[in-house]
């Protein structure tokens, strides 16, 4: 059994390193100026990662606060709700949302959400704000279920203290954040990885323009969307550049995941 375990783990590690090896080939052959620039024009062999990295970070900066705040607020309400049919129904709906493919939410967003945004802001409807809002809507249930399990354990341990000291909402919240720091870091980590890696919703709603957005209604392109859009027809240096983007994504995510794992162990 030990050998099976070792072989499986080594195979998995090797599989993760293969895109990194392809990425290294690109970084060795392409010029430094080319991949640090802010222009992604494959026809002119300009493979600047700046545009897609900026797009990814913009989506993360807009969506993450909404996901964490919304998830925590919903989890707080659910934990403090007494056991009832409505609570069970809400939890089931949350579990449904956690399992839903993002394509389904994208179809709904294209039919209803984008026309509403178009009417409200007098824009095309596809852009940074639309993608961030729908992504936040999609991932709030994930954050809710993660916060719900941490908050339930917290309630079990602190409910007597809360009753005896008659704590208010803000005191209770502060104690929760102080006592469950590693679990909160884990939730934030996990949501960041989901936002960073989300492809289908971004492809359907962000407009996919490889340029720097000047406002939150402008279209953007993320790193994952760049790969998904261009991989089927890319060749030679263009293909290697896409693996370069993937390698960069892998490194960023591995750093985030390792930070989460280390904070778990503390």
């Amino acid at each position: 059994m030990l050998w099976v375990l070792l072989i499986l783990s080594l195979c998995l590690i090797a599989m993760v390193l293969i895109p990194m090896y392809q990425a290294v080939e690109f970084y060795m052959s392409a010029e430094l100026d080319s991949w640090f620039s802010m222009e992604w024009i494959p026809q002119l062999e300009q493979f600047g990662f700046g545009v897609s990295l900026l797009g990814t970070m913009a989506i993360c900066v807009l969506a993450m606060p909404m996901i964490i705040a919304g998830g925590w607020l919903l989890a707080y309400q659910l934990v403090n709700e007494k056991q009832s049919v409505m609570k069970n129904l809400t939890l089931s709906i949350m579990q449904l949302w956690c399992s839903l493919p993002s394509v389904v939410i994208g179809v709904w967003a294209i039919s209803q959400f984008v026309p509403s945004m178009r009417k409200l802001f007098d824009t095309s409807g596809y852009g940074l704000l639309t993608a961030s809002l729908v992504l936040a809507l999609y991932l709030v249930p994930v954050a809710t279920m993660l916060f719900y399990s941490s908050y339930s354990q917290f309630e079990k341990s602190f409910s007597d203290l809360e009753e005896s000291l008659k704590m208010n909402f803000w005191t209770k919240t502060r104690i929760f954040f102080l006592s469950c720091k590693s679990q909160i870091v884990h939730v934030v980590n996990y949501c960041f990885c989901r936002v960073f890696g989300e492809t289908m919703l971004i492809l359907m709603l962000s407009g996919n323009a490889a340029r720097i957005p000047e406002s939150i209604h402008d279209p953007v392109r993320t790193m994952t969307a760049t790969f998904a859009l261009e991989a089927p027809y890319a060749t030679d240096l263009h293909e290697q550049a896409l693996y370069g983007i993937t390698g960069l994504c892998l490194i960023l995510l591995l750093v985030v995941l390792l930070i989460g794992k280390l904070s778990d162990e503390k």
Binding site: L12, C249, L250, L257
Partner: peptide, 11 residues
């Protein structure tokens, strides 16, 4: 397993 579980499906 933790590292692979945390990776987005596109990767």
């Amino acid at each position: 397993a933790y590292l692979i579980a945390g990776m987005p499906s596109i990767l």
